[in-house]
């Protein structure tokens, strides 16, 4: 039982990181019906931004603690948001309104570009992420929780609540929901749809960067290809929950995280990375619209 609870905690921790990345996929898809295959690479760049920010404030030299954590997160999220806006403006916007295949190919191109630019700029060899929090293990009824896991759970909860507030309580959030329902109808309400799309990319990219920093705190080896696998898994999580559906991305991420840790805990860790694709195949056969998705007819 204790073993099971331990797996549960580990699964929720990694699952909430997948959820944060999945939110970016799902929000962009919801608005543009477009899968941004470069999103995993934005996660990677975000992690590197976090690494640089940590370097600038001297976190590796021991200047760590809550203030350092906040600075690193804000810097990474802001940097990635700017990157997301640039990608949207210069790569995706020019092909908007063209056949979907063009956008898809553009996204793959952007992904390769970011990975190779990463190799060029950051170097191909892995970098070590500094310890932002003093390592500590808490024990709750025999279940061990590390300070990094506490940080992951608290941080992702906070970000998701924040996102929920933005989407359901603010003017821009309302505009996002309107645009995702119908771009034309939203324009007729006076909503500047281009600006809403830009804001969506900024928000999604910032969440990916936060996930990148959280991931690096638990798995402190950063390399320019780290976004490939995590991005793919988060995409599976988004599809699992129902792509385009915001709560679905959270549920999908958590389900995937739990499935991974349970499988590697009880079966074998060699299956860890495969389970995502097994889940993807199962959901596509059983309920293609995803766990929380409604069967909606495709809009043109």
């Amino acid at each position: 039982m204790q073993e099971f609870l331990q797996q549960l905690v580990n699964g929720i921790a990694i699952g909430s990181i997948y959820a944060l990345i999945a939110l970016g996929y799902t929000m962009v898809y919801g608005i543009l019906r477009f899968v941004n295959f470069a999103h995993g690479d934005v996660f990677m760049v975000g992690a590197f931004f976090g690494l640089f920010a940590a370097g600038w404030i001297g976190a590796s030299a021991g200047a760590n603690g809550p203030a350092a954590v906040v600075v690193v997160f804000l810097a990474a999220m802001f940097g990635a948001a700017v990157l997301g806006v640039i990608l949207e403006r210069f790569a995706y916007k020019p092909v908007r309104g063209q056949p979907r295949l063009n956008a898809l190919i553009t996204a793959i191109g952007v992904s390769l570009f970011l990975e190779n630019a990463g190799i060029l700029i950051f170097g191909a060899d892995p970098k070590t992420f500094p310890e932002l929090l003093p390592p500590a293990n808490y024990s709750v009824g025999g279940v061990k929780i590390s300070s990094t896991q506490v940080m992951t759970l608290a941080g992702s909860c906070l970000l998701m609540l924040g996102l929920n507030f933005v989407v359901y309580r603010t003017r821009i959030g309302k505009a996002m929901r309107a645009v995702s329902f119908s771009r034309d109808a939203a324009s007729l309400m006076g909503i500047p749809t281009d600006r809403v799309i830009t804001a969506t990319f900024a928000l999604g990219s910032a969440l990916a960067a936060a996930a990148g920093v959280l991931f690096s705190m638990s798995y402190p080896r950063l390399d320019p290809l780290m976004g490939v696998m995590q991005g793919l898994k988060a995409f599976v999580a988004a599809v699992l929950g129902g792509i385009g559906n915001i709560p679905g991305a959270v549920v999908g991420g958590l389900v995937l995280g739990l499935a991974e840790t349970l499988v590697s805990g009880y079966l074998s860790s060699t299956y860890r990375d495969a389970i995502a694709f097994v889940l993807l195949i199962v959901i596509l056969i059983v309920k293609p619209s995803g766990l929380l998705g409604r069967a909606v007819s495709e809009k043109v």
Binding site: R177, S182, D184, A185, S187, L188, G190, T193, D194
Partner: peptide, 22 residues
């Protein structure tokens, strides 16, 4: 762009009662 036209007071109620169903 549409949003600037709406701002001037020219408002279009589209065909097929497209309401925000969600």
């Amino acid at each position: 762009p549409s949003h600037q036209i709406v701002k001037r007071g020219l408002v279009h109620i589209p065909e097929g009662r497209i309401v925000f169903a969600n």
